[in-house]
Nucleic acid binder design. Sequence first.
DNA 1: ATAAATTATGAAAACGTTTTCATATCAAGA
DNA 2: TCTTGATATGAAAACGTTTTCATAATTTAT
Lengths: 347, 347
Amino acid sequence: MATGKKTYQNTILDIAEALKLSPATISRALNNHPYVKEKTRNDVVEMAAKLGYRRNHMASGLRSNRTRTVGLIIPRVSMFFHAEVITTIQNDLHKHGYHLIICQSNDSVRMERELAETLYASRVDALIAACTLQTIDFGHFDKFVEHDTPVIFYDRVPVNPYKATLIKGDDFQGAYTATSHLIAAGSKKIAHISGPLTSNLYQDRAAGFLKAMEEQGLPVNQDWIFHQELSHENAIKAMQKLFETTEVPDALFADNDTTAIAAIEFAKAAGIAIPEKLKIAGYSNDPRTAIISPSITSVEQFPNLVGKRIVETLVDLLSPDHEGATYKTEPVVVPVKLISRMSSSTI
Amino acid sequence: MATGKKTYQNTILDIAEALKLSPATISRALNNHPYVKEKTRNDVVEMAAKLGYRRNHMASGLRSNRTRTVGLIIPRVSMFFHAEVITTIQNDLHKHGYHLIICQSNDSVRMERELAETLYASRVDALIAACTLQTIDFGHFDKFVEHDTPVIFYDRVPVNPYKATLIKGDDFQGAYTATSHLIAAGSKKIAHISGPLTSNLYQDRAAGFLKAMEEQGLPVNQDWIFHQELSHENAIKAMQKLFETTEVPDALFADNDTTAIAAIEFAKAAGIAIPEKLKIAGYSNDPRTAIISPSITSVEQFPNLVGKRIVETLVDLLSPDHEGATYKTEPVVVPVKLISRMSSSTI
DNA sequence: ATAAATTATGAAAACGTTTTCATATCAAGA
DNA sequence: TCTTGATATGAAAACGTTTTCATAATTTAT
């Protein structure tokens, strides 16, 4: 009290003093620098623990120009798929001593651009991004690439080559499997409510759908294919269009579960029996698909696996002895799996 | 190129040089220090914009001992209520120039303790926490309080007085309203599946339930009251107990929607008509409650409002001209609202 | 045994800000 | 006009690390 002793947190200098060593040695010992005697390192680690030393990230980051922080930009944390991905990313990154700063674009390109700017200014060590569906120009990520900050895109990824790592679900396979499943269940006249083709996601799913149809020699009715924002309202509108004519489809492949749910609601209201008259498959395996009746067949995307892959990749790219480019040249593809439920049952 | 000019980011020194001023003045101008001439400030701000200057958080934080970062500890980001709260907190904090570091305890007290430790070491300017249901000892937050770092608890808050700000839903009112609603719909024999009484949440809801029953002069059957972890399995077990005897309840008030959903499933399987033979009300207004059939009456907690209140409070407590304690003495109570659906309908 | 190479440590600078202290300028009061 | 007090700026220290450079200690090669 009478002394000028500070009471807040112990620093590297306190350890140095206690051990009669220089701060430089303490720093080296704590950072696993090779040129530190085994005994010295042990002493330091022990004393650090004893004093309850915690590295000051700001001082460390200022000097070394590394923040041990990763930035994440996503449309919304409250979307089921993303919430699950984040859960894993956050948990796994924490194990590796990294912080995660989560930012939401609210599906606005302008916001996404602004957030990228902010995160760049915050000197994050790496950036993870699931872009907006409207993001076509990826210029706001250039800064990162130019300064060798790894960028990882997942879910919604650039269509054109970009110096970043891509991690995505197997959308082609998912759509192909779902469509094949509907066909195998006896459907012949299949409609497809898809998202906008500006996104790789929906391009791939559209291709998977077409491949399955073609493979089974089924005609594709262009009036039954919709490319639109996958909202509840849009889905209802599409259903109205589909069922206002005399010839109606006997199955629907929807690119997300919100659309599939809306379709069920519409069918119930219109007295269309599911799965007898109309079979439905959705995408993402949202928890709601298991709850609604009839329950909805959907494509599981394994968000936790996606998160795991992201962190694995990142840790590799950020490891001090990583060599070469700051991105993987080959996209990492995470498998998907069809979860079959009542909405596509044969009875 | 030939010059030693660095190309990375402009600093306060670059602005100083460009304007023939000292770095001190630049800093003051940028931080709205009163003793800076109007013209000077304008010049500085203009030049900063021109040079694309962005404050280096680490240098700033190191010197001023403020990180402009807020820590958040929650059980899981993928729970609907929390996902929504986070969405708002993150968006609003961002507007005020704060970063948010989100950490998940996975509902483990040990993890929660560890995360508190980490966030403390990270020198967050404030901490927001939604504790584990098992958290009874709040000692791991003492450090923050002792060092005048504001702590805000929401949702699950300490029962005993603690030098922190409490933000919670009106659980008493929610339970009271839901129960009264069931009674008004004609129910007389109401069961209650509640969470463990170690948490304020369930204490308040239990009290609200009892108040409503008492007020209407209805007897409370202790065999029909459960205090347990609110999982799907536990809910099914409770339902089995409730319906294995001759005298069965005609309504159920469930402390969360997972339980209410399980109850619906059980009732469907057991051939108990809802709402004719059994009326059900849940809690949280999870999206699934609107989807399932029959749809479930539930208590909306306005997560976005909770998030808004949290940030408001925080910004106030962190504002440089805030005086007095680092916490609010009175808890902030966010209103709730009953959403009436089919599961409690009178027809 | 001596030189050379390797390993281990310390001194001091550096990172980019904020802040204290000193000093200069300015407006107002006598 | 000269003080005074307020306003405005600058010089330099400080925050806690990491890192460069220099040097000391140790091992290996000759």
